[in-house]
Every structure is written in structure tokens, then in C-alpha cells.
């Protein structure tokens, strides 16, 4: 019988997310990928994406003890899917939709140019972001998608999925 790897969950963190527990999540996911036989460049793509998505949640996500963020890693038929889900204030929705739509329409060459231009000429935000995280995530992922769905009158769920296919 053929084994289906569709949505085989390897790791799930649903709960408070901060700089205290992020290193544990990073190490756990790195070890999991290592145990799956993945080589360093592939692990680096997935783990650095995890770091960027998690730190976006820590910096910009809406804190809510009852509805905490979610990070997960699943095996799919093509490879691995990293999911990050968190609440955002509805005022951030318009920006996120416009920003991500714009990035997703760019070619790889244009994404690379944007990354390099932001790296060399951009400014850091007060929260320590460089404006490069999502650019890198979309550039590195083999597939990228996002969803914004209403959670209540003030907040929406922001869900990002980044898929990676090992080449070896």
C-alpha cells in the first residue's frame, strides 16, 4: 500500500511565542529535518524561514493569550510545508495584502534585486526588522501562499504557508 505523506504533521507549536522559546523551536525543527536525512542547505532554507516568520509574529503579531500563534512543519508529497498562523489587527490587513500581492507577482530576479537593494540601502525599523524577512521567505520557498480570514471584529487570522522541495 502506498504511503501518503499528505499533511503528515512532524512538529506543531501552538502557544505563546517569544525569544525565550524560539531557540527551542528552532533546535527541535533543525533536529527533525536532520533526522529526516535533509542536508544543510535545505535545512537552512526551512529553518531560516521559520526564524523570519516567527520573528514577524513576535514583532508584529497581536498578543492574545486565548488565541496564541501556531507554527507547524508537515511532510507533503513534494517535501515539507511550514505554516505560521497568528492574529493581526485588522488595520494591518490592507498593508499585508498589498505588500504580499506585490511580492508574489515579482519574478525571482526582481525579488533578488529588491532584497539586495533593501540590504544595502534600506533602514532598520525601531523593532529591529530590516524589511527583508518576507522577501527572503518568498524567494527561498518553492511555493508560498497566505490567507487573511476574519477572527472577530478587530482581528484577523494571518496564515502563511511556505513549501520546500528537497532536490537531493
Amino acid at each position: 500500500m502506498a504511503v501518503s505523506y499528505e499533511h503528515k504533521l512532524l512538529y506543531r507549536h501552538e502557544g505563546p511565542l517569544d525569544m525565550e522559546n524560539l531557540p527551542y523551536i528552532v533546535q527541535t525543527m533543525d533536529r527533525l529535518l536532520h533526522s529526516e536525512g535533509l542536508r544543510p542547505p535545505f535545512r537552512r532554507k526551512v529553518v531560516t524561514t521559520l526564524i523570519e516568520l516567527a520573528q514577524n509574529i513576535i514583532r508584529y503579531g497581536a498578543p492574545d493569550e486565548v488565541r496564541p500563534p501556531l507554527l507547524s512543519l508537515a511532510r507533503s508529497e513534494k517535501g515539507f510545508v511550514l505554516t505560521a498562523k497568528n492574529l493581526v489587527h485588522y488595520s494591518q490587513e490592507i498593508f499585508l495584502r498589498s505588500y504580499l500581492t506585490n511580492l508574489m507577482e515579482m519574478s525571482r530576479d526582481d525579488l533578488e534585486k529588491l532584497y539586495n537593494a533593501t540590504l544595502t540601502e534600506g533602514n532598520m525599523s525601531e523593532k529591529g526588522g530590516a524589511g527583508l524577512g518576507l522577501v527572503q521567505v518568498i524567494f527561498k520557498a518553492d511555493e508560498f501562499s497566505y490567507e487573511l480570514t476574519p477572527a472577530d471584529e478587530q482581528y484577523s487570522w494571518f496564515t502563511v504557508k511556505a513549501s520546500f522541495s528537497p532536490t537531493v
Binding site: 531560516t48 526564524i51 534600506g122 532598520m124
Partner: peptide, 12 residues
Amino acid sequence: EYFNTSTAKVLL
């Protein structure tokens, strides 16, 4: 080892 994009910028 692992570094984030804001580190990439500061390194430059």
C-alpha cells in the same frame, strides 16, 4: 550558523 535577515543587514 543560523542568522536572520536583520543580521544580514547589520553585517553589511
